[in-house]
Design a protein around this nucleic acid. Structure first.
Length: 522
DNA sequence: CGTGTGCTAAATAATTAGCACACGGTGCGTTATT
């Protein structure tokens, strides 16, 4: 195995002005050796360098699969600034020019969504262009979305084969061990080098609060947002909830969900990035591509659908390294909703009816089923490899295809069940939350925690008292906070960085009552 | 599976209890209409 470190770091320095970390070196070096690589590195660790640097070192075209058109443009623009020709192919009209750059050999990177690779003609054109590296960005999507939402993710392995099996590089910031295995298997990766680190975010204080009723929760979340200063995110489980909460919060907040007009979403995103809007109340739609360093809090007004989502959403706080807060406001009822939303069964006869319609050359539109159900059936058939990206039947036996789709639905359901159970266990966990979350990602806590709720009780070996509320007085009562440093005082709210408990906002009265602060704290 | 809504009836003049029912998330793509 050749040592490429000099060459790679040279490219990184001269082209981009980067110094590669050890992890980046290892991953990029293995790619250059022709090995498959799975890199799970936190945001900000320069994941894109891992495909960009070896992509430039190799002689030919690097294909980058990216889930969102907006992300594709971001990446292409970043490469463009470094003087590298990178093009995007999607459903817009600009595709012709992009293909010209690919076929002339001018383009070194091509960014596209998996749906493009489901089209045989796209793969054929790429075969002609000579692909030397196949990178999958945000590779957790293969596992999270592949089963029935964006099934073309499940067919990337087939595209890789048809492209002559270039090295496959999978990149993501969040993937627990089972997700990693799933990504490796689904992408057909061969003995990949796995580079996985950095799930711990010690500056984020993790808390969870259980609420007896929906009203209580809503009131608690609103109160907390009003108490917390600075920029923050609130994740809510439904579109309607995002609108209601944002309306309650007034001018400081905006909502964001996939049902909003594209222009509106863009405006909210830009206003948030620019700091004109402090709080965005969103569904899980608000996520990838957000890289605002000074997010001070992330509140969940409901359970996320997995600990991977949770880690990702929480991880949007405190990227600048300063203290931040994450609070999960949960109810047991949340989990019933998760099960329903992600794992409603698709009956075999529905799948069969859709399969028959597609095989007969008709669209699935005339099958008499609710739209959502029809779409799921189509997605399952695509995932099963029976239907192509352009909705043509791939020429398999009907029964076999239906059976495969049903099996996929079953696998998906089981996966959802187990993810929900893990979220439940986390929400109810009596001990140290940070340890709990890290354990899920297969890492150990590097040091005694003291920066999450529950870790005190965990150390004492006691069950944490279930606090319906979360206000600072209760917090003070539960944990005997030690020395702290005042970070800021606004009105009657004092933000304190405690040695043991991390970042907390207290009422002035609570601070005085408890004589919490050392006299000379600045 | 749960939650919120809207209807109806009961009890009485403005509200409420009970019940049936709709709806719930993520993004590519394509297509039909301005």
């Amino acid at each position: 195995m050749a040592d490429h470190s000099g060459r790679l770091s040279g490219i990184a320095r001269e082209r981009f002005g980067w110094e590669l970390t050890d992890e980046q070196q290892r991953a990029a070096g293995a790619v250059l050796d022709g090995r498959d690589v799975l890199a799970v590195l936190p945001t900000g660790a320069g994941k894109s360098a891992i495909y960009q640097v070896p992509g430039l070192a190799l002689d030919g075209l690097t294909v980058v699969v990216s889930p969102l058109v907006a992300l594709q443009h971001d990446q292409a623009a970043a490469l463009g600034e470094a003087g590298v020709c990178a093009v995007v192919v999607n459903a817009d009209r600009s595709a012709a020019a992009a293909w010209e750059a690919v076929e002339s050999g001018e383009a070194r990177f091509l960014l596209l969504a998996p749906e493009q690779l489901a089209k045989p003609e796209v793969v054929e054109r790429l075969r002609g262009a000579g692909v030397v590296l196949f990178a999958v960005d945000e590779a957790h999507c293969v596992s999270a979305w592949g089963h029935d939402f964006r099934p073309d993710y499940l067919r990337l392995a087939a595209a890789v084969e048809r492209l002559g099996r270039p090295p496959v590089l999978a990149l993501t910031a969040t993937a627990a061990p089972p997700v990693r295995d799933d990504v490796v298997e689904r992408l057909g990766m061969r003995d990949p080098l796995r580079v996985c680190t950095g799930f711990d975010r010690p500056n984020i204080h993790l808390a969870a609060h259980r609420h007896p009723s929906e009203r209580d929760r809503r009131a608690a979340v609103l109160e907390r947002v009003r108490e917390l200063r600075g920029t923050g995110l609130v994740y809510a489980p439904t579109r309607a909830a995002t609108e209601e909460i944002a309306a309650e919060l007034g001018a400081r907040a905006r909502c964001f969900h996939a049902g909003m007009p594209a222009g509106e979403k863009e405006r909210v995103h830009e206003a948030f990035t620019a700091g004109e809007v402090e709080v965005v109340v969103a569904t899980s739609a608000f996520g990838m591509g957000i890289d605002k360093p000074d997010v001070r809090f992330v509140l969940h007004a409901g359970c996320p659908d997995s600990l991977d989502s949770y880690h990702q959403q929480v991880g949007r706080a405190g990227r600048d390294g300063d203290p931040a807060t994450a609070e999960l406001h949960h109810r047991p009822e949340d989990l019933a909703k998760q099960r329903f939303l992600t794992a409603t069964g698709v009956p075999e006869d529905a799948i069969r009816a859709v399969a028959k319609a597609v095989r007969a050359g008709r669209g699935p539109q005339d099958v008499d089923l609710p739209r959502a159900r029809r779409t799921r059936a189509v997605n399952l058939l695509v995932g099963a490899g029976a239907v192509d990206g352009d909705l043509t039947w791939v020429g398999r036996d009907l029964d076999e295809a239906v059976a495969e789709a049903v099996r996929l639905a079953e696998v998906h359901k089981r996966a959802v069940r187990s993810r929900v159970e893990m979220v439940r266990a986390y929400a109810e966990a009596p001990g140290c939350r940070r340890q709990e979350l890290l354990a899920y990602f297969g890492e150990e806590l590097p040091e005694p925690c003291g920066n999450c709720d529950g870790c005190d009780a965990g150390r004492a070996g006691e069950r944490r008292t279930s606090s319906g509320g979360f206000d600072v007085h209760e917090g003070v009562r539960h944990a005997e906070w030690g020395r702290g440093e005042v970070m800021s005082v606004e009105d009657d709210r004092v933000t304190v960085l405690f040695e043991d408990e991390g970042y907390r906002t207290l009422s002035l009265a609570a601070v005085h009552d408890r004589d919490l602060l050392v006299p000379d704290a600045s």
